[in-house]
Write a protein that binds this DNA or RNA. Structure first.
Lengths: 152, 152
DNA sequence: CGCACTATTCACAAATTCGTGAAATCCGCG
DNA sequence: CGCGGATTTCACGAATTTGTGAATAGTGCG
């Protein structure tokens, strides 16, 4: 029953990779499962069945993924079955959303450098790291935009 | 005693941010503490004192950070005190090292798409995500290189 | 050589995370 | 309205993670 839909192995491996990168396990599995979903998306019950977990686990995972703007809940009127589906621009907007975090981390590094007297090498390294992070924060959204253009 | 060195607050906030992004807590704290270190780096004992944790916790954290090539152990001959210090290109090489992971994840997505018949929209979205990831994998190292050039 | 001190390892304890089952809630439909 | 099915919430238990303390090992110096 769980292998009635193809792509299981790759989905699980991808989920494992995302989990290793810091994403909670269940959301990662749900997300990868949705990559191989039919066009209408999956029902919560289908996800639970497919992943072999309880409905509660799916509920928690989809809440997390919705808060991250990675999936959306498609409630077709006249049918109270909620279907879930990936946001088309999910990862791209994730990349963009992370940029301010890089900038913020850069600020912290600068603050540390400001407060670190008598350690010239350390300070200049901290400033260097901070500048790199700000560069990333600036370039990541541009990168996404370049991708949008190239893809056209 | 733990506030004898400046930069504590910003360091802790930065560490919390890194932890939220999936990095284990203790390595994150050690890493941020080293950002504000004196030029010689910190001793394991100094780190333990500064962070208010046991020597064992520091030992585990530095092992993790070394395996990630984020810090290095400076054993000055004639002194058995091991000092730890950030690798100058730590974050840049981390960014570069992640590129193959993006590519791998892209492969998984393509595999899922290959195996997903009768869901044209899902498939084309999966291919799109895969292509985006490969684009990232290709561009991230270039981004770092651009930064190196611009910096000098 | 062994002393003093530092760093690492190991087993355990605390804390957090994760997923389940059962109860509660919601909603379209008869 | 209330029924039936789907989803969410909640408290608990399991499992993984995280950090500590004590023992171990390594090393420069007397």
């Amino acid at each position: 029953m769980s292998d009635e839909h193809a792509g299981i192995d790759a989905a699980e491996q991808g989920a494992a990779m995302l989990a290793a990168a810091g994403m909670p396990r269940m959301p990662a599995r749900v997300m990868m499962a949705l990559v191989g979903s039919p066009d209408e998306g999956y029902t919560a019950a289908e996800l639970a069945d497919r992943l072999g977990v309880s409905a509660a686990a799916v509920s928690g995972a989809v809440r997390y993924l919705q808060s991250m703007r990675i999936i959306q809940r498609l409630s077709k009127p006249g049918d109270r079955l909620a279907r879930y589906d990936l946001m088309d621009d999910g990862w791209r907007s994730m990349v963009i959303a992370n940029a301010p975090l890089y900038a913020k981390l850069g600020e912290y590094l600068d603050t540390i450098a400001d407060e670190n007297t008598d350690a010239p090498a350390s300070v200049s390294r901290a400033r260097d790291m901070a500048a790199f992070l700000r560069y990333l924060a600036e370039r990541m959204p541009e990168l996404v935009e370049e991708w949008e253009n190239r893809r056209r």
